[in-house]
Every structure is written in C-alpha cells, then in structure tokens.
Amino acid sequence: MADEPVKVPIEVPAATPAPSAPRSEGPSGGGTHRSEGHSGGGGQRREGYSGGGGGGQRREGGGPGGPGGGGPGGPRRGGKRQYFRKKKVCRFCVERVDFIDYKKVEMLQPFVQERGKILPRRMTGTCSRHQRWLGEAIKRARNIALLPFATEL
C-alpha cells in the first residue's frame, strides 16, 4: 500500500520563479529609457556614493538585459504562472490514508530532506491535515532513531 509512492514532486523549485519575477518587472516598465538618462548625467555624480554607484550599474545592466531577455522572459513568465504548473495533489488523500504509521520509514522518507528536515507543504503538495499527521509521524520516528534529527557528518 505504501510501497508505491517513491517519487516526490520535489522538482518544483521554489527558488527559480523568485529571481525571475523582479527582473521581468523592471525592464518591462520602460527600463531602457531610465538607464540612459542616469548613465549620462547622474552616473558620475553617484560614483561618490557606493550605494548609488551600485544602483546605477545595476540599472545599466538591467537595460541591456531587458531587451535581450525579453525573448526568453516571455515564456519564463508564463512558466511562473500557476496555470502552467502541474497541480500538486496530496498523495495521502489520493491513496485515502487515514493513519500515517511512524514505523514505515520508507513511507516517510520522501517527505524528509536529506539532512532530515521535514519538507514543507508547498513542496510536496500535502494537504494540511495529512501534513499534520505526517509531521507527527516523522517526529515519532526521529525519537526512536528511525529518522535523523539532522545528519551528522
């Protein structure tokens, strides 16, 4: 019953959409015009300030990045939207699990990181009720040395 689910939808990386979001917003709002204006007059003045200089450079970098990244930015932005992402389903709900046994380590393992961390719901798609039971089961398994609290090196 529990042996089948080995694959976990961990592949959905939470980190990838995050950096693309500000980048795509910046150049889309006419970023090229702004960067030209600052580089002409304000760029030299702001070199005195370390923060301002950094900001100017960043904008200049963003200017050419905007049109260049406009092509790949479109599909990337589409990928970020939830319509295109595969919908995550609670695996325990699909299998109609009413009780998560803390003794079945191979069942709990997919929901634990290699270092022993419990994977968040947003990664695995587990529903809140089952995540609660799962957390309890993992903690019980940890107590009796079936699962690690944190892997020691």
Binding site: K103, G116, R142, A145, L146, L147, P148, F149, A150, T151, E152
Partner: peptide, 16 residues
Amino acid sequence: RLAYRVSKHREGFFVY
C-alpha cells in the same frame, strides 16, 4: 542502522 548515534552506537537491535 540507527539514524543517529545513540550512546556511541550506530546500529541497534530493534524490538517492537
């Protein structure tokens, strides 16, 4: 195998 060291042991005999 124990998931972590328990009183200097890495393995243990489990009884349930």
